[in-house]
Design a protein around this nucleic acid. Structure first.
Lengths: 153, 153
DNA sequence: TCATTTTCTTGAATCATTCCAGTTTGTGGC
DNA sequence: GCCACAAACTGGAATGATTCAAGAAAATGA
């Protein structure tokens, strides 16, 4: 089921403690960025260099075990839900990301009105809005704009 | 017609040489990034500080005269086509950006399958593909992967 | 166990962007 | 046209995310 080691091996990657911990971290977290992943990994393994985290994230992403998303205004985030063509909903206020199932399921799920000659293979959809928490906060505190920081998991 | 000064004034902004030059630059260019804008502006005005360019881009974006887009993997880019809800087509190879008219026209033009309680106000669609030039290059050079650099103007 | 190759470590560098403090400039009022 | 004041701009340093580089450690197949 969640045998990360096998996933790594069948993707042609060596099995290392750092990679396993990173996969675990990403699977249990919610669209974490590199720094958060590093922190989590260090929590379970002790010291792991930042570079090792970036290297591993690259390798895992390239191998198709992780997907990297880059919502405007926040550092790259990683998720373990790969292989489907789902989309994302991002909170303008706290930056939280939620998954949105694609109604079509296969890329590209939306057709451009004009391809301009491009060979289009994917339509990435990002829904922007305000999450329930931030809505409540905004209503409660009299409409003040919440700080643009990550609401810790 | 293209009286930038009036646009600036009616947006409540002071008219400065730097801002006018930046607007001209963005209007005549194709989704330029800050550095390219700065270079263009310097070409017509002489020295302009990087900070001034960033300040102006912020002010113009905030005032709604420019729109800022951030395709994954490239620095922020600016365009003068504002007020409609058009989308973008980005070349995976050279990073070039093309405008795509939205079939609906108003945000959010796509409905998420599940809002998760978010107040959604926009659906940003980015089409990913390979531009005609890069397709030709890839075919011509025997399938070599073109460098991920910006193909100039 | 050994050799080979990949991965990890440390430390510095890069890129895009922002922060800060002081100077200059545009604009409305006189 | 001249002044005052706020808005813009300058120069320089700092930040955050990510990458580069070179050597050390560890995983894998023989």
């Amino acid at each position: 089921m969640d045998n990360v080691a096998d996933d790594l091996r069948s993707a042609g990657l060596r099995v290392t403690a750092a990679r396993v911990a990173i996969m675990d971290q990403v699977r249990s977290g919610n669209h974490l960025d590199a720094e958060r992943i590093a922190r989590g990994v260090r929590g379970s393994l002790g010291h792991v260099s930042t570079q090792a985290v970036y290297d591993a994230l690259h390798a895992l992403t390239k191998a198709g075990l992780l997907r990297r998303i880059e919502p405007a205004g926040s550092p790259a985030r990683f998720e373990s839900r790969v292989g489907d063509n789902h989309h994302h909903l991002v909170c303008r206020s706290c930056g939280e990301v939620a998954d949105i199932d694609c109604v079509v399921g296969e890329a590209p799920c939306v057709e451009p009105s004009n391809t301009h000659g491009y060979a289009v293979d994917e339509a990435e959809v990002v829904f922007w809005g305000v999450c329930p928490q931030c809505q409540a906060q905004a209503a409660g505190s009299g409409g003040g704009e919440p700080a643009r920081t990550q609401s810790g998991g």
